[in-house]
Amino acid sequence: MRVTFTANGKPVEADDVWEGESLLYVLRERVGLPGSKNACEQGECGSCTVYLDGVPVCSCLVAAGQVQDREVRTVEGLTDENGELGLVQQAFVDAGAVQCGFCTPGLLVQTDALLDQDAQPSDNDIREALSGNLCRCTGYEKIMDAVRLASARKCAGKGASE
């Protein structure tokens, strides 16, 4: 079947999609957006997290046919038009929150969504929000640092612009 949707603001189209295929597969293998990662394909790791109509979801659990005419934003869409890193992306690099980096794309989208809702989450809030994103390398400490750093920068940025 054919599936058309918007990915990172651009219309995309995939042909010959098998009906059982996931959005993750379509993104990675058909429309050239391999940033979202395929670590479990069972919703347990969060590496494939993308925004679907503004809500973070596991793209491995969305059937390709379900995204017809909808909007998807992936880790590739967190970078600005000039290719500059977004705030959350920069914080993850700066805090040393990236080791192998396989968990990173999902964590970035989930963190972006968290800070969108609440620019100054408590540690418990951060842990709850990221509890569906497994990381095997870092022990999460530097990820906590990265989210706190992104939060601080976001709040400082807001303060400055007000």
Binding site: R28, L33, P34, E76, L85, Q89, F92, T104
Partner: peptide
């Protein structure tokens, strides 16, 4: 020192090609 990872930017942009991204 603790310079940033040289592959860090590629990784946070989703542009770092893992073995499963080969195509």
């Amino acid at each position: 020192g603790s310079p940033l990872r040289p592959d860090g930017n590629l990784k946070v942009k989703g542009e770092f090609a893992y073995s499963s991204d080969m195509w």
